[in-house]
Amino acid sequence: MECPALPQTLMGYVVRCSGRHQVGLAVLAAGVFGLSSVPLELQRRIVNDAIKSGSGRTILWLALAYVAVALLEQGLKLALNVYRSWVSEDAVRTLRKTLCTLDEGEPAAANPAPARDDGETGTHAAMVVAEAEPIGGFVGMAISEPLMQLGTLVSVVGYMAYIEPWTLVLSLGLLGPQMLFVPPMQRAINRRAGARIRTIRHVGGDIVESGAPEEDRIERVFALNMGIYRIKFSMNLAMNFMHHLAVAVALGVGGLFVLDDRLQLGTVVAVVSGLGKLNDPWRDLVNWGRELSVDAVKYRLFADALQHRGLATA
């Protein structure tokens, strides 16, 4: 892939440099989330047939079908992850080649450019070594990741609501409150991430210029990193608590319904498993949003630096 000029936005870069591959990744992602609710139904049927003293032959076939679906789902995930990795690494390579090509083209003999100062050299080194990696790494997951996770959420919530309507309220109770505290916490992370990138660039310039960075800047990077960790892990704690609270409600309410013969045990098992399948894609979707926000900041700084050095943005 070649990108003669960097687009203004990160998603614009994703489409420009990997548009055809994003289609293939989206197809694989659709295959993965299309299978997401099938294991839940197989679990439900196996448990209910076992409790009802159903046919052993039927239970065996359902178990074999479960294994086959699991293998197919994991095989699609393997293909998706390998393909994503290739697209991401290709994007990283393209960004680094863009920098190297820019270097080879300056200064021109007829119009010599001014010598680059040490601070700019340090910034350039940081861009080649560190900043291209996360930006390019996001390219592989830019479209397929939210598609797969949103598809999984819709599929699992729809299945749970189909087998037992009250679980829809439970699902919304799990996800709804998180929509209140996740966005502001993510914005706080984004602010610190942008400040961290700028500070690290200054650290790189200090090393090139004087051989050692300023101590204040090192302390600044440390403080920003710790701020990011505190917010990130606090957010994870709150999300985990909401998940376990939902599981407790499902077990409590479902157990009472089973005692009153209003619900089959297999349905409770499927609901609890479904909550686990909701927790993972929701967490991955939040992580994707975090990566999008942070890497968009990195990309904007990266593109601005290249524009300053003579590469136009599209």
Rank of each mutant, 00 (worst) to 15 (best):
E2C: 08
A5V: 08
A5E: 15
T9E: 06
M11G: 02
R16T: 05
S18H: 10
Q22G: 07
A30V: 10
A30L: 13
L35Q: 13
P39T: 02
P39R: 03
Q43V: 02
N48K: 07
S55Q: 12
L60S: 03
A65N: 00
N81Q: 13
V82R: 14
S85H: 13
V92A: 06
V92C: 09
A108I: 06
P112R: 13
A115I: 10
R116T: 15
D118N: 12
E120I: 00
V128G: 06
P134A: 01
I135Q: 10
V139Y: 03
G140K: 05
A142L: 07
E145W: 02
P146M: 07
L147I: 10
G151P: 06
L153N: 09
G158K: 03
P165C: 03
T167Q: 08
T167D: 07
L170S: 07
L180M: 06
A193N: 12
V203D: 09
D206V: 00
D206M: 01
I207V: 12
E209C: 13
E215Q: 10
E219T: 01
R220G: 01
R220L: 04
R220D: 05
I228R: 06
I228V: 12
I231M: 09
A248C: 09
G252T: 04
V253T: 09
V253Y: 10
G255A: 03
G255P: 07
L256F: 14
L256W: 14
V258P: 08
R262H: 10
R262Y: 04
G266F: 11
V268E: 01
V269H: 04
V269Q: 07
V272H: 03
V272T: 02
S273Y: 08
P281D: 14
R283L: 07
V294Y: 09
A296Y: 08
G310N: 15
L311P: 10
